[in-house]
Design a protein around this nucleic acid. Structure first.
Length: 577
RNA sequence: CGGAGUGUAGCGCAGCUUGGUAGCGCAUCUGGUUUGGGACCAGAGGGCCGAAGGUUCGAAUCCUUUCACUCCGACCA
């Protein structure tokens, strides 16, 4: 492709909408363009890279026996009502009606649709196992679209669904997808880690998230350097501190004026935050706005609540719970916010973090404004309707597997795999007949890769202060041949020769034949991040060119033939890594 | 959704406090000189100042309402 003919424009300045490197460079390289918040279009160069990722995904899916299909993004509400997710999915689902007022959504994911297809077509155990996938546009009306392709409202996703006879089959399918994912992300040039994850709105029991490590990532993982433990922080189990050994002292109400926060209470009473109880009052909805209950949650004062653990134990969708407001708090506790405690709390479900059970003589709110109670002990003074781990893991906490201190890291969630089990087959009636002509539920798994997010993650990990540095496998082109001075016949002729030779040898080549000054071309080549740069300049008459890799600063002078040969060799070796 | 901020030419911004009918850099077009890391000179085109109301002789500027966008928090591929 000749740059003089290509539809692209690099930007000299950083658009004000962009904050993080992937967003900045994809915009500046002219690869993407925003339509509205969270919705982007792909320009020729950007779309080529998207297709490269898709192709890698296809190859790895097909290698595991996956079969590609393509379902509509437009989905009827009925299927979602069958699975129960029409309500559970919440406001993130993009809903619409047709002219007859029939309800639809733009698919945020496709479990229902694939289950529906399969229940109608699969009837015998002989048709299983089955793995179907698609690469398709998904819609999620995100609360807060952010960071360009990182969190967008329209995005390209590969979603695969496995259908097995039994749990052993699912284990096998899951393992194969897991392997395929490792290959996909490795081929894309990502540094990533597979970690245990919560299954969230998708459901199921076991799940792993593939996280491309990056400081700008929105996903946080906890891992251990002494064992294999690695999990998202929302999933990671926490180890309770050892129980206190001191004897239980009698409770005593004390006056603590204006001490609303844990810090204030602890410093007012001169105790550590580990000797306090943090109280959080929530309002949780059932199936409708009218049906709700109040939930009092108690954890040790120095801990943070893990919201995911809470909604999991309550078995409600995330959008069905909110903090109680000041009026409700007053009604339930009889005090203003900041003085809620578990002792004498009525009309409210009480959920207690397991760690509190063993801790002795703690400080808690007295459910009376400006008062706390000291020497509060579990069992003797209060009990929970539910006692479970509700803590958010933090750096330095003990590893739940081996006890060593855990570390935290940030990353971009580029893929996730789930063992769904029978969640959808049961709700939607997807059965097969076994050897004895008996109906059996199909056992399902589902597997997603954020294709466009992967593109952003690649840029996030592969750039410098001058622009993108594409890994060969996802680069829009392999080589860029720059004519330093268009108009000089020797340069033009030699560049044309190299351009055609490289193309004949199978390389994807850009020829910068624009009537621009050299500086402009070099800057653009850096921004675009094409892995190999061949510069045809002053020594063209002698048949000599410069050969340089985008990732290196040094270049070498070679004959045109040698440069072309070296380029082909490098492309081949990189693609086969 | 809560909090903060911003909407002025394709992009980045100034002007707004103290109203007087819109400007700078980049980009674009023309001519010329340049040509190894985002050139220079001369000239030109391009904006219902986010939208709607209001105040005023007069509004980008003041007031009200609204929409959009970005950032910080809770959620996901």
């Amino acid at each position: 492709m000749r740059l003089s003919k290509m539809y692209f424009r690099t930007l000299r300045e950083v658009p004000s909408e962009a904050e993080i490197p992937s967003h900045i460079w994809l915009l500046r390289a002219g690869m993407i363009r925003r339509l509205v918040s969270g919705v982007y279009g792909f320009m020729p160069l950007g779309f080529r890279s998207v297709r490269k990722i898709e192709e890698i995904v296809r190859q790895e899916m097909d290698a595991k026996g996956g079969q590609e299909i393509h379902m509509s993004a437009l989905q009827p509400a009925e299927l979602w009502q069958e699975s129960g997710r029409w309500y559970a999915y919440g406001p993130e689902m993009w809903r619409l009606k047709d002219r007859n007022e029939r309800e639809f959504c733009l698919g945020p994911t496709h479990e229902e649709i694939f289950t529906d297809i399969v229940r109608n077509e699969v009837s015998s155990y002989r048709q299983l196992p089955l793995n179907l996938y698609q690469i398709q546009t998904k819609y999620r009306d995100e609360k807060r679209p952010r960071f360009g392709l990182m969190r967008s409202r329209e995005f390209v996703m590969k979603d695969a669904y496995s259908f097995d006879r039994d749990w052993e089959g699912l284990d096998q399918s899951y393992r194969e997808m897991y392997d395929a994912y490792e290959r996909v992300f490795k081929r894309c040039g990502l540094v990533f880690r597979a970690v245990e994850a919560d299954s969230g709105a998708i459901g199921g029991s076991v799940s792993h998230e593939f996280t491309a490590l990056s400081d700008v990532g929105e996903s946080e993982i906890a891992y251990c350097e002494h064992c294999d433990m690695a999990a998202t922080t929302e999933r990671a189990l926490c180890v309770d501190d050892a129980p206190g050994t001191e004897s239980e002292l009698p409770m005593e109400k004390v006056v603590t004026p204006g001490t609303k926060t844990i810090e204030e209470v602890a410093s007012f009473l001169g105790v550590g935050q580990t000797k306090t109880i943090k109280a959080l009052l929530f309002k949780a909805y059932g199936k409708s706005e009218a049906e709700f209950e109040y939930i009092g949650v108690f954890i040790r004062g120095d801990r943070e609540l893990n919201m995911t653990k809470l909604i999991n134990v309550l078995d409600i969708p995330e959008h069905a719970i909110e903090f109680a407001d000041e009026n409700e708090m007053g009604r339930i506790t009889g005090a203003v916010g900041g003085f809620t405690g578990p002792v004498g709390l009525h009309d409210c479900k009480v959920i207690v973090d397991s760690e509190l059970v063993g801790q002795k003589n703690l400080v808690a709110g007295a459910c009376e404004t400006d008062h706390h109670i000291i020497n509060v002990n579990y069992e003797r003074d209060y009990r929970g309707d539910i006692v479970t781990d509700l803590k958010l893991i933090k750096a330095g906490d003990r590893c739940p597997v081996c006890g060593a201190p855990v570390k935290l890291a940030r990353g971009i969630e580029v893929g996730q795999v789930f063992k769904l089990g029978t969640k959808y087959s049961k709700a939607m009636g997807a059965y097969y007949k076994d050897e004895n002509m008996e109906d059996q539920l199909i056992i399902m798994g589902c597997y997603g890769i954020g294709v466009t997010r992967t593109l952003a993650a690649v840029v996030e990990q592969h750039h410098d202060e001058n622009g993108i540095i594409w890994p060969m496998a996802v680069a829009p082109y392999h080589v860029i041949v720059t004519i330093v001075n268009v108009g000089e016949e020797a340069q033009e002729a030699l560049a044309e020769t190299i351009y055609k030779d490289l193309q004949k040898a199978g390389a994807e080549v850009l020829l910068d034949d624009r009537k621009e000054r050299p500086g402009v071309k070099f800057k653009d080549a850096d921004i675009l991040g094409i892995p190999i740069r061949i510069t045809v300049g002053k020594k063209a008459a002698e048949g000599v060119v410069e050969y340089k890799l985008r990732k290196d600063s040094a270049h070498s002078e070679l004959s045109a033939q040698d440069a072309a040969a070296q380029a082909i060799c490098y492309v081949t070796s990189e693609l086969n890594r």
